[in-house]
Design a protein around this nucleic acid. Structure first.
Length: 595
RNA sequence: GGGGGCGUAGUUCAGCUUGGUUAGAACGCCGGCCUGUCACGCCGGAGGUCGCGAGUUCGAUCCUCGUCGCUCCCGCCA
C-alpha cells in the first residue's frame, strides 16, 4: 500500500470545532483514526486530533473511490480528508460529543501513515499498566485526556508569566551547571572534563543565584525553573521538577505572600474559573502542629487533635501517666459516629499504621449509650471519662483514638492517622481548594545523628527580630521569618525573608556549627556578596508540577510531566540512565568500581 | 536502607487457596457478512518463555528461596 503525500493540502479546521452552524462548508481535517465502524457499504470513522473528535462518513453514493480506499483504515492510522460538513440524520446526533450534531461526508481521502498494532489502545477502552504507558509515553500523550493536562500546564505557565511581568518582575535564567552545596538534598553531580576530577552539581534550586541577583540590584526576579534532587522518589516527587521561583528586594514576608496570593487567585480564576477563599488564612507552625499534627494541614475536614495530657497525667493508666511524666503528651482524635465502622480487625490495622510512625500503641474508646467499650476503660474514673468526652466533644457513637508518646511521635502518628481515617470514611470533600499560609517555623532543629543544629528551611533564613536573643542560649526556641503555602494538605511552596546582614549570617553559621572555613568553601561567594551592599530581600518558590497536578485533579505529578521517571529514577522510554563508553569515562578521568 | 502490593495472550485480568485434562474471559488483532453506527452487530480464526533463575516434587503458572522490573509507604527530600 502506498502512503499518500500531503502535497498542498492544508487543514481548515481541527477535529473539535465544527458545529451545526458550519453546515455545507467544505473542510479539510487531519488526524488519527480513533475508531472505525465499517458496514461494508457505509463506513464511519471517528477522526481524532489534539482538540477533539469528529465523525467522518464514507458513502459510496457520495464518492465511490475514497469509500473503496477507506476499507483498509485501522485504528491510529494518520489520514487527511476533504469533505462537506453535513447535518446528521434526524435522531442520529450524538449528544456526548461537542461535534455530535454534524459529520463530514468525505469526497477525498489521503492516507498519510499507517501503524503497527499499538502496544495498548489509545482510545483507552482497556487501560494499560503505567510501565507500558511510560515506555510508549508518546502514545499515552496522544490521549486527549492526558493532552488536556499539558494544555492546562502551558496556560498556567503563561498566566504566571503575564501576572509577574505586569508587576515588574524579570525572568532571569540561572546556571544549570553549578556548585555542589552539600547542605540539604543530595546533589546530582556532573563530572568536568576540562578540570579532571572535579564536578559540577545540578541546582536543587536557584537559591544562591537569586540572592546574588538581589545584590546586583535586579529588585524583582522570577524564573520558571527546573530543579534537581537526587533523593528517593514518591508520587509527588521526581528527580527533576519545576519551580516558580521568585525573589524581591526591599520586601518583607507580607509583600512576598501578597504576590503569590494574587498569583494563585488569578490562576484559579483564569484556568478553573473559581474564586478561592480571600484572603488565604494564616496559621502559625505551632498551631498547625497542635491542631493537625503536621506543618501542612489539610483543612478541608475537622477531626482535629485534642490534648488530654492534663487528664492523663493524673489517671490510673500507667502508659498515659508515664508518657506525660517523661515529657511526652497524650493526644486524641474523635472519629464522629464511627463506632460501627471500625471492627477489631480495622483497629488492629490502624494500630500497626501508627506503629510505622514510632507510636508504641493506639488506644481506642467506643463511646456507647451507657458506657465506654475500651480495653482501657477500667483505668478511668467517671469524672475523668466525662472530662475526656468534654475535651473531645464526644457523644454516643463516637470513636476516640489516643496516642501517648513523645511529642514528635504523637503529632506525626495522629496527623497521619487523621488523614488515613478521613480517606477510609470519605470525609474529604472533593472539588475543594483550601489554601493556608503556615508561618513562623522554628529556625533550627537538633540533629541527633550529626550532633548539631540544622536549619529547618535553609541557612540564609532570617530569624524573627524579637527572637534573635534566643540564638545564643536556646537556638531551637527561635523562630524564623518563613512561610509555607499549603493547598489541601500538600506543601505547594515556601519561602522566607533572607539574611542580608553579614554579621547575622555569621551568627547563624555559628549556631549551625559551620566553621568560617567551611562556610567560605561552600558559599563564600554569597557571603562576600553580602558585604557589597545587599538590600533586604525575601522570596519564595512553589512546586509547579504539584500545583498543576492538584488543579488537574490527578494524584501523581507524573500525569503532568511529559516524560517522567519511574520510582527508581529511570526513564522507561529512553532507558536512561545507561552505561557510557570507556572512552567517555577515560576523558573524564573516571573509573567504574567492579562489583 | 526498610516494609507492603503487583508481574499469566498485544492489553486488562481470572486461574494459584488444595501442584496433575487442551491455562480461560473481555478488549484488541486477522478473515468473512452487513447502508446510520458511535463500546456497531453477527460468524470464523490466530495469538502464551505463566518476569527471570534455582530448589522441593514423579510432576510447578501454583509451594520455597533468590533475582529483576513497576508501584505505594517509612527513612530521606535544608
Amino acid at each position: 500500500m502506498v502512503i499518500d503525500t500531503l502535497e498542498n493540502w492544508k487543514r481548515t479546521h481541527d477535529c473539535g470545532s465544527l458545529r451545526i452552524e458550519d453546515e455545507r462548508k467544505e473542510v479539510l481535517l487531519m488526524g488519527w483514526v480513533n475508531s472505525r465502524r465499517d458496514f461494508g457499504n457505509l463506513i464511519f470513522i471517528d477522526l481524532r486530533d489534539r482538540d477533539g473528535i469528529t465523525q467522518i462518513v464514507f458513502d459510496p453514493q457520495a464518492e465511490k473511490q475514497s469509500h473503496e480506499k477507506a476499507h483498509v483504515l485501522r485504528n491510529e492510522w494518520v489520514i487527511a480528508v476533504k469533505g462537506v460538513v453535513t447535518k446528521r440524520l434526524e435522531g442520529q446526533e450524538n449528544e456526548n460529543m461537542p461535534t455530535g450534531a454534524i459529520e463530514i461526508v468525505v469526497k477525498e481521502l489521503k492516507i498519510l501513515n499507517k501503524t503497527e498494532v499499538p502496544p495498548f489502545q489509545v482510545d483507552g477502552a482497556v487501560d494499560a499498566s503505567e510501565t507500558l504507558r511510560l515506555k510508549y509515553r508518546y502514545l499515552e500523550l496522544r490521549r486527549p485526556k492526558i493532552f488536556r493536562n499539558f494544555k492546562r500546564r502551558h496556560m498556567m505557565a503563561a498566566c504566571i508569566r503575564e501576572y509577574l511581568n505586569t508587576r515588574g518582575f524579570l525572568e532571569v535564567e540561572t546556571p544549570i551547571l553549578t556548585k555542589s552545596t552539600p547542605e540539604g538534598a543530595r546533589d546530582y553531580l556532573v563530572p568536568s572534563r576540562v578540570s579532571e576530577g572535579m564536578f559540577y552539581a545540578l541546582p536543587q534550586s536557584p537559591q544562591l543565584f537569586k540572592q546574588l541577583l538581589m545584590v546586583a540590584g535586579f529588585e524583582k526576579y522570577y524564573q520558571i525553573v527546573r530543579c534537581f534532587r537526587d533523593e528517593d522518589l514518591r508520587a509527588d516527587r521526581q528527580p527533576e521538577f519545576t519551580q516558580v521561583d521568585l525573589e524581591m528586594s526591599f520586601a518583607n514576608e507580607d509583600d512576598v505572600m501578597n504576590v503569590f496570593e494574587g498569583m494563585v487567585k488569578k490562576l484559579f480564576k483564569d484556568i478553573l474559573d473559581r474564586d478561592i477563599v480571600d484572603p488565604i488564612p494564616h496559621m502559625e507552625y505551632s498551631e498547625a502542629m497542635e491542631r493537625f499534627g503536621t506543618d501542612r494541614p489539610d483543612t478541608r475536614f475537622g477531626m482535629e487533635l485534642k490534648d488530654i495530657s492534663g487528664i492523663a497525667a493524673g489517671c490510673g493508666f500507667k502508659v498515659f501517666k508515664g508518657a506525660v511524666e517523661n515529657g511526652g503528651v497524650v493526644k486524641a482524635i474523635n472519629v464522629k459516629g464511627a463506632v460501627s465502622d471500625f471492627s477489631r480487625k480495622i483497629l488492629d490495622e490502624l494500630s500497626a499504621y501508627v506503629a510505622g510512625f514510632g507510636a508504641k500503641g493506639l488506644a481506642w474508646i467506643k463511646v456507647n449509650d451507657d458506657a465506654w467499650q475500651s480495653p482501657i476503660a477500667k483505668f478511668f474514673t467517671d469524672e475523668e471519662k466525662t472530662s475526656i468526652e468534654e475535651t473531645l466533644d464526644a457523644g454516643t457513637g463516637d470513636l476516640l483514638l489516643i496516642v501517648a508518646d513523645k511529642p514528635s511521635v504523637v503529632y506525626q502518628s495522629l496527623g497521619a492517622l487523621r488523614l488515613n481515617i478521613a480517606g477510609r470514611l470519605n470525609l474529604i470533600p472533593e472539588d475543594r481548594f483550601d489554601f493556608l499560609w503556615v508561618t513562623k517555623f522554628p529556625l533550627v532543629e537538633y540533629d541527633e545523628d550529626e550532633g548539631r543544629y540544622q536549619a529547618i528551611h535553609h541557612p540564609f533564613t532570617a530569624p524573627l527580630n524579637e527572637e534573635v536573643f534566643l540564638l545564643d542560649e536556646n537556638p531551637d526556641k527561635a523562630r524564623s521569618r518563613s512561610y509555607d503555602l499549603v493547598l489541601n494538605g500538600v506543601e505547594v511552596g515556601g519561602g522566607s525573608v533572607r539574611i542580608h546582614d553579614m554579621a547575622m549570617q555569621e551568627k547563624i553559621f555559628n549556631v549551625l556549627g559551620i566553621s568560617k572555613e567551611e562556610a567560605d568553601s561552600k558559599f563564600g561567594f554569597l557571603l562576600e556578596a553580602l558585604r557589597y551592599g545587599a538590600p533586604p530581600h525575601a522570596g519564595m518558590a512553589i512546586g509547579f508540577d504539584r500545583l498543576v497536578a492538584i488543579m488537574s485533579g490527578v494524584d501523581s505529578i507524573r500525569e503532568v510531566i511529559a516524560f517522567p521517571k519511574t520510582s527508581s529514577a529511570s526513564c522507561l522510554l529512553t532507558n536512561a540512565p545507561s552505561m557510557v563508553d570507556d572512552d567517555q569515562l577515560k576523558e573524564l578521568g573516571l573509573a567504574i568500581k567492579e562489583k
